[in-house]
């Protein structure tokens, strides 16, 4: 089990499990609706600009860096 770090810091191609979402209530509920909630497995697909593209299950989202900093993940072993 790797250490916990913000999603925004992962390199493209990395898989991880969400540990915690440190955002306000509205944002947390919204992210939960998208499947971005604790225990979900995410994969960073593209991270070389300000925002990044992550895939969760069968869906893919573009997230701004600000949000990605608030999503804490454990890198897959």
């Amino acid at each position: 089990m790797g250490a916990v770090c913000p999603l925004a810091l992962l390199a493209a191609g990395t898989e991880a499990t969400i540990a915690d979402v440190r955002a306000g209530k509205g944002m947390r509920l919204r992210l939960a609706g998208l499947g971005l909630c604790p225990d979900a497995r995410v994969r960073v697909q593209c991270a070389d600009r300000g925002s990044l593209i992550v895939s969760v299950g069968d869906a893919r989202y573009a997230l701004s860096r600000g949000i990605a900093m608030k999503i804490l993940v454990k890198e897959a072993a």
């Binding site: 989202y61 573009a62 949000i67």
Partner: peptide, 9 residues
Amino acid sequence: SPFIMEMPP
């Protein structure tokens, strides 16, 4: 407000 958007296939 922060940017979240689905990328459709």
